[in-house]
Amino acid sequence: MVRVTVWNEYRHERESEVVAEVYPDGIHAVLADVFEEAGHEVRTATLDEGPEHGLTEKVLAETDVLTWWGHAAHDEVRDEVVDRVHEHVLDGMGLIVLHSGHYSKIFTRLMGTTCSLKWREAAERERLWVVEPGHPIVEGIDEYIQLEETEMYGERFDIPQPDTLVFSSWFEGGEIFRSGCCYRRGAGNVFYFRPGHETYPVYYDEDVQRVLCNAVEWAAPTDGPTPAFGNADPIEGIDTSDDRTVH
């Protein structure tokens, strides 16, 4: 069981009838149901949930994996909260960034780039090709996932080279895109997954749900030795009388 916190901006669903028809209780509610059905312990948090956007120190301390969906209000996320999330990722919390979360403060901070891309809303077909079939995130997935109506994201995607690229998308209009990107930042695993525009029912797709559940398990921290930093005593017996330090 993984402790998952599903964070959602939760603005479009309350302000647009079109989006509310697709996600009447919010994108976070759909994702929470998916993770709960997979047997995980799930909580949700949203942008307007208090001054800390529902991401208090207590919440993050009790989170193994944080999923992040944002779009219209990236700038409203307080820098202090971004700092807190960033610290927890470096300390080992997993982070799954979804769709337009590529422009979120936390993702651009972790990537160190603009994370800009091409885009088009034309309800076009997308095929997400599995390019790393042995990766745990694609367990149970066929050679590709086909989505009939999506928003196009196209290259160039201004991100660092992924540690592992697990999906590469083709769109009906001809573009391609790196749609499933894995990174290691500090002790934390980070996965960017492209599908999920708010006006299309992408998160109801069973293959997309399977990828997200796989990603939660992949991103979750594992028990291992805690690294030690700074000045260190010798493990073996050596002469430590040299005092030429300038520190």
Rank of each mutant, 00 (worst) to 15 (best):
W69A: 05
P201M: 02
L55H: 04
F35V: 13
F191N: 01
G94H: 07
T46V: 13
D33G: 13
T222V: 15
E62P: 11
G70L: 04
E217D: 14
A220M: 02
R210L: 09
R43F: 03
D64S: 07
V81T: 12
R14F: 10
H12N: 04
I145M: 08
G186H: 06
R127C: 02
D239T: 12
T240M: 09
N8A: 09
V208Q: 01
D223I: 13
E151R: 14
S169D: 03
V131G: 01
V59L: 00
G39C: 02
H197L: 05
M152S: 08
R43N: 02
D25S: 11
V77D: 01
Y23V: 09
E172V: 14
W119I: 00
H28T: 10
A45W: 00
E13Q: 14
V65W: 10
N189R: 13
V4K: 06
P221F: 00
G224E: 09
L128W: 06
R194H: 11
E143T: 09
E57N: 09
A122N: 15
T150M: 04
L147D: 03
V216P: 02
E62V: 12
E139Q: 10
N231I: 10
E172A: 08
T44D: 01
P225S: 09
G112E: 13
M93W: 11
D223P: 00
A61G: 13
Y183L: 04
W170K: 14
E155D: 12
H102L: 10
P160W: 13
C115H: 00
E149P: 05
S241Q: 10
F191A: 02
T63R: 06
E155R: 14
G174V: 08
H88K: 05
G101M: 13
E15S: 03
L212M: 00
D79L: 11
T226E: 15
C115F: 06
V208D: 03
G39H: 09
Y103D: 07
G54Q: 13
G224F: 11
G173A: 12
A232N: 10
F35A: 02
D243Y: 08
G140S: 11
P24T: 11
A219Q: 05
V19A: 07
G174N: 02
T67I: 00
V89K: 02
M152D: 00
R185D: 05
L90V: 04
E172S: 05
P227L: 01
T63Y: 01
E217C: 03
G230D: 05
G196Y: 12
R3H: 12
E126Q: 12
G186R: 01
L110F: 13
A61E: 09
T222S: 06
E9G: 13
G196N: 15
Y200L: 00
A20D: 02
V130F: 12
I96T: 11
E143C: 03
G112I: 00
A215H: 00
E17C: 07
N214D: 05
